[in-house]
Design a binder for these strands. Structure first.
Lengths: 135, 135
DNA sequence: TCAACTGTATTATTGCACTAATACGCTTTT
DNA sequence: AAAAGCGTATTAGTGCAATAATACAGTTGA
């Protein structure tokens, strides 16, 4: 059974997209594998404190993308081919990296400065300050 | 006069937040300096193809944060103290880097792999595929 | 069998980002 | 002074994310 214990909705992105992203990252990281059973829509919505329809929206899209198998009345399972896994990894990493590079470039720093920033901040603890930008 | 030629709204973030971010990044990068004149709400909205109220919402928040001076009937100008500039730089860079690190860690890759990814993708050209994740 | 679950579907409502159309009063320019 | 441009404010409407309350049909386990 796939665990959503580490899932925490945050940021401005719609929750259903965050669920999709959480599952995909789990797949890419190997913590979610082919054949894994998913929690039911109702169970997960209760666990996350959100509406069942929001979970359904996420799962439905994952099913449309071929990562989930669902049937009326039956439990849902992950269906991940090796090729699909490889593509997923590439997509996620590429998106992350390009997003950062785009931001850093806009801030006018060099590649070397960027590398130093990543390296020195890697083991930094997560802090609060969820929104920020005031004053 | 501050140029918004390189501004392009994209992603799921509200447009007014993207405008705020664009201005702040310009300040951090040095392309926007203290005393610079801002385009009028109407001009900019026409240029960006968005509603004047959306620009106003962005400028109003920047004024609340003390980065912009506005007066009824008058043009608007940037007001950036050296200290404010320094704080802004730190904030933006920190946010960018922590965002990426959080994502990459979730994808289960190491610090060394992360550094290699940044380095090898730095000079990569921006591509299309704005949404993605299909199939 | 039958109760308890499952996925799926429908309709209504709320909140927010954004658009749209004005209006008012001030500043600047001629 | 007068026109043009400015910041500011108000009101209304749209689209989407999310909530809420059901309902129905299929699967599963006691």
């Amino acid at each position: 059974m796939i665990s959503f214990d580490n899932f925490k909705a945050e940021g401005r992105s719609p929750v259903y997209l965050q669920i999709i992203s959480f599952v995909k990252r789990g797949v890419a990281a190997g913590s979610i594998v082919d054949g894994d059973e998913l929690p039911s829509r109702r169970m997960l919505s209760a666990l996350l404190g959100i509406n069942p329809n929001t979970v359904q929206k996420a799962f439905a899209q994952l099913e449309r993308e071929g990562l989930i198998w669902s049937g009326t009345g039956a439990k849902s399972y992950m269906t991940i081919s090796p090729k699909r896994l490889e593509l997923l990894r590439e997509e996620l990493l590429r998106d992350d990296v390009m997003l950062l590079i785009s931001s850093l470039k806009q801030s006018g720093i060099s590649r070397e400065e960027a590398l130093e920033l990543i390296s020195s901040n890697w083991d930094r603890e997560e802090e609060e300050d969820p929104e920020g930008e005031e004053l």
